[in-house]
Amino acid sequence: MTTKKGKFLEEFNEAFLKADMDYVVANVTDDIKWTVVGESPIQGKSDFAKAFEMMEPGGTQELKISNIITHGITAAVDGTVRVVDESGGVKLYAFCDIYRFNKFKEPKIKELTSYVMEVKE
C-alpha cells in the first residue's frame, strides 16, 4: 500500500528522470537545499532550477524504485536508474535520496540529500 507521500515521491522521481522541470521546481520550497554527496550543496529554488536545467537527460532511461520510506516530515527513496549515454553505452546508477519536507500536510521538499553511484551489472 502506497501512502500519499510515497505516491508523491514516486511521481517526483519520475518527473526528475523525465526532466519535467515545471513539476520538480513546483514541488520544492524557495529555500530548498540539495546536496549531492561529494559535490557542493545547491541552495535556493533559483539555483536548484539552474542546476536541474543543466542536467542533460540521457537517452532511454529506466527507473526502478526499490523502497520508499516515509515518517512525518522525512522520507527516503532508493533504487536504480538505467541511462543510455551519448555514445550509446548503457550505465546503471544506484541512488538513495533522503528528503525533508517543510510540513506534514501538503508538503514541499525543503532538503534533499542524494547518494548516487555507478554500479556494474
Score class of each variant (00 low, 15 high):
residue 58 G to C: 05
residue 104 F to D: 07
residue 26 A to Y: 01
residue 85 D to A: 06
residue 8 F to V: 12
residue 70 T to G: 01
residue 91 K to C: 01
residue 11 E to Y: 05
residue 12 F to Q: 02
residue 93 Y to M: 11
residue 81 V to I: 15
residue 42 I to N: 03
residue 24 V to C: 05
residue 14 E to H: 12
residue 100 R to G: 03
residue 12 F to G: 02
residue 60 T to E: 12
residue 17 L to A: 09
residue 55 M to W: 14
residue 115 Y to C: 11
residue 6 G to C: 08
residue 61 Q to A: 13
residue 88 G to D: 03
residue 27 N to Q: 07
residue 56 E to G: 09
residue 75 A to D: 03
residue 64 K to Q: 14
residue 12 F to R: 03
residue 16 F to S: 09
residue 62 E to C: 04
residue 109 I to A: 05
residue 43 Q to M: 07
residue 16 F to N: 06
residue 87 S to Q: 15
residue 10 E to F: 00
residue 44 G to A: 04
residue 44 G to M: 04
residue 35 T to I: 12
residue 73 I to V: 15
residue 107 P to C: 04
residue 55 M to I: 13
residue 112 L to G: 02
residue 111 E to R: 15
residue 107 P to G: 07
residue 73 I to R: 14
residue 115 Y to H: 13
residue 35 T to P: 00
residue 2 T to R: 03
residue 115 Y to D: 10
residue 63 L to D: 04
residue 29 T to F: 01
residue 117 M to Q: 15
residue 113 T to R: 14
residue 30 D to G: 09
residue 70 T to Y: 01
residue 3 T to E: 00
residue 65 I to Y: 04
residue 57 P to L: 05
residue 37 V to N: 09
residue 104 F to I: 12
residue 104 F to Y: 07
residue 58 G to A: 13
residue 45 K to I: 13
residue 14 E to R: 14
residue 120 K to H: 10
residue 32 I to C: 04
